[in-house]
Amino acid sequence: MIDKVEIQKPWREQSPKRVATAISPALIPILVASILVKTTGLDGKLGFVFSWVLASTVTIVIWPVVIKKRASRGDLFMQTSVVFAGGIFLGAVAWLFQSVLAPGLRAFRFSLLVKDAATVGVDTPLDQGGLLHAILGSLVIVGLATLISVPFGILAALYITEVRGRLVPFTRFFIQAMSGVPSIVAGLFIYAALIVSKVLPFTGLTGSLALAILMLPTVARTAEEVIRLVPDELRYAALALGGTQMRTVLQVVLPSARTGLITATILGIARVAGETAPLLLTAFGSNTTNLNPFSGTMATLPWYIFTQMTLGTENDVARAWVAALVLMVIVAMFFVLARTLGKSKMARR
C-alpha cells in the first residue's frame, strides 16, 4: 500500500468575488443581446445569436481592461475566454439533445419498440407498427461488422507494435489511407465488388462488410496507441521468465491493454452506428424483422430515419424522430457499458 499524499494545489483558492468577475463577462453579453433584440430591428433567433457573439467578443477583450488590477488582466482574459468557449460548447450539446429528444419523446410509444413495420404504409397512425426491425437489424449488422473488424484491427496493431516486421510502414500507411475513405465509397465498393458481380445479393452481411471497412482503421489506430502504452518492462519480464513472444502478447500485453482495446472497439462502433449511405447500397432495408444476416435484406436505424423523412408525412416524420432517439440511446448505452467494463477490471486490481 502506498501512503496517500495530500496534493497541494499550486493555484489560489477561488474567492466568490473572483468567480463573479470571471463569470459576469459571460452573462453581460446575453443581457446586451436580449436588449438589442427587444429594442432594435434585429429579431428572431439568428439576430440574438449574432448580437450575442458580437457582444461576447467585445466583452472578452474589454472586461480585463476595465478591471483595475494590472497583474490579473491576463489571467482574467484567459478565464473569461475559457468560460465563454465552454458555454458555447455546452449550449451546442444541449441544443442538439433538446432538438432530437423533444420530437422523439413526443411521438414515443412503447409499442413502437416491440412491433415491426410489416403493416405500415404511408402516414399510418403511430399506434400501429413500429421500428423493432430497424433496431434489431442495426444491432445484428453492427455486431457482425464488429466481429469482422475488431480481430483484424487488433492483429494489425499487434503487427505494428509487437512483430515489427518489414511491412510496418506500409501497414501504417494503408490504415491511415483507409481511415480517409468516405463511407459512400466503402458502400459502392461492396456494391460493385459483391452485389453487381452477383457474388452475394443484398443481405445484412454485405452491410456488415461495408461497415467493417470503415471500422477497421479506427480500431487498428486506437489499438496501436493503447498497446504502445504497455511498458516494455512487462514484456522483458515475460520474456525473461522464458515466455515465447506469443505467450507474452496473449498473457501480458493484451490483458494490460484490455481497457484501451474495449475503448478502441467502442470508438469503432460509434464510427459506424449512424452510417446511412453504405447501408442504402448494401443492406437495402426491409419492413419486416430479419435476424439472419446471410439471407434477405435488412433494415437499420439510420436507413429507417432516412426513408421515413423522405416520405415526409406527419406520422412518418414522427417515426423518424423516434428512431433518432432510439439510435442515440443505444449509442449512449454502449459508451456506459464500455466504461463500466473497463472500470470494474481496474478496481479489482
Binding site: V120, G121, G285, N287, T297, T307, L311
Partner: peptide, 14 residues
C-alpha cells in the same frame, strides 16, 4: 409504400 403492406409479400422499395 402504401400498397406494399397489403401485397402479402415483404416489399422493400427505395
Amino acid at each position: 409504400t402504401a400498397c406494399k403492406a397489403s401485397s402479402g409479400h415483404n416489399v422493400t422499395y427505395s
